[in-house]
Structures are given as C-alpha cells and as structure tokens.
Simulated assay, not measured.
Amino acid sequence: MMTTGTNRIMDEFAKLMTDAAGAAQGVRKEAEAAFHAQADRWLNSLDVVRREEFDVVREMALKALEENEALKARIDALERQAGTAPVAGVQPEA
C-alpha cells in the first residue's frame, strides 16, 4: 500500500512540475513579447529606419547613380559628335 501512495504523490508532484514549467514558459513568452513591443516603440521614437527600408533606398540610389553615369556618357558622346565638347584646359571664348 505504501508504494501506491508514494506513486500517487510522485505523479501529483510531476503534474505540478509540468504545470509550473508550462506557466513559466507562458510568462517567458509574454515577457519577450512585451520586451519586443517596448523595443519597437523605443526604436520608432529614435526615428531609425529598418534594415529592409534602408536596403530598398540604397538600391534605388545605386540604380539612379548608374542611370546618371550612363546619361553623362551619352551626352559626352553626343557632344563629341557635334563637335561641341569642351577641350580640357581651354577656356571657351567670351
């Protein structure tokens, strides 16, 4: 009879520990969510951009730079064809 009582106590203790572990995990998840929310609010108050937004704007800037360089090369080529390209070191006549 003693074994049955001991087993029942151990089963109850194991159930209590399982419930406590589940509760602790729930509290941890809630704490993490609260921390992330607070961190987001803090970062937003600093007016910082997210990495994804930065990468998008950076790609746009690089594309615009490439387009500008291509247009400059095209203008230079057209000026050479027209004979209006400025010669290095020569001042235009007044």
Rank of each mutant, 00 (worst) to 15 (best):
N68T: 06
A33Q: 10
E66D: 12
N68W: 15
R8N: 12
E59M: 09
L65E: 05
K15V: 08
Q25H: 07
K29G: 04
E66M: 12
V57C: 02
H36I: 15
Q25R: 05
E59T: 11
K63H: 13
E59F: 01
G22F: 00
R58L: 09
V56E: 13
A61C: 03
L16G: 11
A23Q: 10
L46R: 03
A23M: 07
L65I: 08
V57S: 07
L46M: 10
R41A: 13
Q38R: 15
D47M: 08
L43H: 09
A31P: 08
V49H: 13
N44H: 11
A14D: 09
A24I: 06
E32A: 08
T18H: 09
A21G: 06
R8Y: 11
V57N: 01
E30N: 14
F54P: 02
K15Y: 07
R28A: 12
R41T: 06
Q25L: 02
W42Q: 01
V48S: 03
A33M: 14
V49G: 08
E53Q: 04
Q38H: 15
M17E: 06
E59I: 04
T18Y: 14
Q25C: 04
W42V: 01
A14L: 10
V48F: 00
A31L: 08
D11T: 05
G26A: 08
A34N: 10
D55G: 10
D40E: 12
E67T: 04
D19L: 03
A33Y: 01
M17P: 05
A20T: 09
A39Q: 14
A24Y: 00
E32M: 11
R28N: 11
R51S: 11
L43E: 02
S45L: 05
T18S: 04
V27W: 05
V56M: 03
E53C: 05
D11Y: 00
V56D: 03
R41P: 00
W42R: 08
V49D: 14
K15C: 08
W42C: 06
T4G: 14
L62N: 12
L62F: 08
R28Q: 12
E12S: 08
A24Q: 04
A31C: 14
M17V: 11
N68P: 00
R51H: 14
T4A: 10
A21Q: 06
K29V: 10
E32W: 07
L65M: 11
G26T: 04
A64T: 10
S45P: 00
A64Y: 09
K29F: 15
N7W: 00
D40V: 13
T6P: 00
E30G: 07
E52P: 00
D55L: 05
D40L: 13
A20C: 09
E67Y: 14
A37P: 02
V48W: 01
K63F: 04
K29C: 14
E69G: 09
R28Y: 09
A21D: 12
L62W: 12
G5R: 01
Q25K: 03
D55M: 11
Q25V: 06
V27M: 09
E52N: 03
R50N: 11
A21V: 05
G22W: 00
L43Q: 13
N44L: 06
Q25D: 04
I9N: 06
A20D: 05
A37H: 02
A61P: 01
D19S: 07
R28M: 13
A14F: 03
H36F: 12
L65A: 10
